[in-house]
Structure formats: structure tokens, C-alpha cells
Simulated scan of single mutants.
Amino acid sequence: MPLRYDGKLYRALNPIHAREPLSGLGAEIYGGRFNPKGVPALYTSLSVMTALREANQVGNLQPTTLVAYEAEIENIFDCSDETALAAKGMDVSLLAGATWRDEMKATGEAKTQGFARHLISIGYNGLLVRSFAAGATHADKNLVLWKWADNPPARLILIDDEHRLSR
């Protein structure tokens, strides 16, 4: 059964891309664990610390711009539902697999990307999945969005009341 998420989401961005916090262009160009190349995506987190872990997975902490959003997102696939995962031919070990990049290079699309493509094709706006970043626990969650807009059913609004990013 699809989930609905209402609340804040966080994203830690490279400052070079901070002026476009609603762009999924980087993910679209390069592909990500849960989006094939050609499909824009926003990788957001349910907590600030998870967002920081996700953005700085290699080496030392680099300069980062943290942004927050108000979200009202319907039709989210819940990856913690192991029965629903199994029905889609997935399991937690496949979601967590560290070789998705190699698989993408070798075959053009990793299994997790194919899974995402299927979910998108049947109307999901995103998926809720635990973070697999170093130091993350089962409580650290990400919400990967494939569809977002200014209004429901995939409402995502940047919190920038003081217009700091446009300066």
C-alpha cells in the first residue's frame, strides 16, 4: 500500500549546485542508486544528519549547503515492507548492494534502477528507503523523489523565506 509523507525533508548540496535545490539534473545525467540515467531525481532525507551522511560518503566532510523542504507527497513505495519488496523481485540486500555503479556501467542499468523505473511506470512519486551511508542506522531514512511540484500529489516547497539562495 502506498505511503503518504507530510513533513520536512532535507538535502545536503554541493555549494556549486545550491542555487538549484529543486533540480534533479545531476541524478538525471549520471543516474543514481534509485534512478536510471535520463530520469531526474531528488535524494532527500528525513533528518539533517542523514542528509549530511549521504552527501559526504567519501573522504572528509566537504563544504555543503543544507536545504530544507516542506513536503506533501503521495504514492510513496515503502522499502521497509519486505513483502511488498519481494512482490517486486527485490530485497534489502539488493537495495543495499554496493556494486550498483559497476552494474550500471556493465549492463546500462543496475537492478535498483530497473526497480525504480518499474515503480515510476506504475505511478509512484518516490520511495522511502533506509540510508546505506557509512554510520547510518536503520532509523536513518531517505525519500527519493521522481516527481515533485508546487502542488499535490507531489508537493515539495523549498524553505527559503529570506531568499538566501537567490542572493
Rank of each mutant, 00 (worst) to 15 (best):
S80M: 04
L66M: 04
F132L: 11
P36K: 15
A149T: 07
N142Q: 12
L156Q: 06
H138Y: 10
F77W: 09
A133V: 10
Y10Q: 02
L127G: 01
G26A: 12
L119K: 01
E82Q: 13
P40Y: 03
L25S: 14
T83C: 06
L13D: 02
L3C: 08
P15D: 09
D161A: 13
A55L: 02
I16E: 06
V39M: 12
P63A: 11
L13N: 01
T99A: 09
H163E: 12
V92E: 12
A116T: 09
A86V: 11
D140I: 05
G123P: 06
I16Q: 13
P153D: 00
G26R: 09
L66V: 03
L52N: 05
L165Q: 10
L3N: 09
L94Y: 10
H163Q: 08
S45V: 00
E70R: 15
S93K: 15
R4N: 14
A51N: 01
W148H: 04
K88P: 07
R130I: 00
N142H: 12
A133T: 11
T112E: 07
E20Q: 11
L119W: 02
E74R: 10
R155W: 04
D102P: 06
E28S: 14
L119M: 00
T83F: 13
K111A: 13
R164Y: 06
R130P: 13
S23H: 03
A51W: 03
V39S: 02
K111G: 10
G32W: 04
G114K: 08
A86G: 10
K8W: 04
R164L: 12
D140K: 09
R53P: 12
D161E: 15
E103Y: 04
A41G: 11
L128Y: 13
S45M: 05
I29L: 10
L25M: 13
T112V: 14
W100M: 04
P21W: 01
H163A: 14
A110N: 15
L158D: 07
G89D: 11
Q113P: 10
L25W: 14
W100R: 00
K111Y: 12
G38K: 08
L9Q: 00
K105T: 10
D160E: 01
P152H: 00
L85E: 13
Y124P: 07
A136C: 02
Q113H: 00
A12R: 02
L52H: 08
T112W: 07
L95M: 03
V144L: 11
I157W: 10
L165I: 03
P152K: 06
G7M: 02
R130N: 08
P40S: 11
G97C: 11
L25H: 12
G114P: 08
R101V: 00
N60D: 13
T65M: 05
E74P: 12
S23N: 06
D161T: 15
V58Y: 14
L52M: 06
T112L: 03
A154Q: 09
I29H: 04
G123N: 05
P40T: 08
A98R: 08
G97Q: 09
Q113A: 08
P63N: 13
H17N: 12
W146T: 02
V39D: 05
Y124W: 01
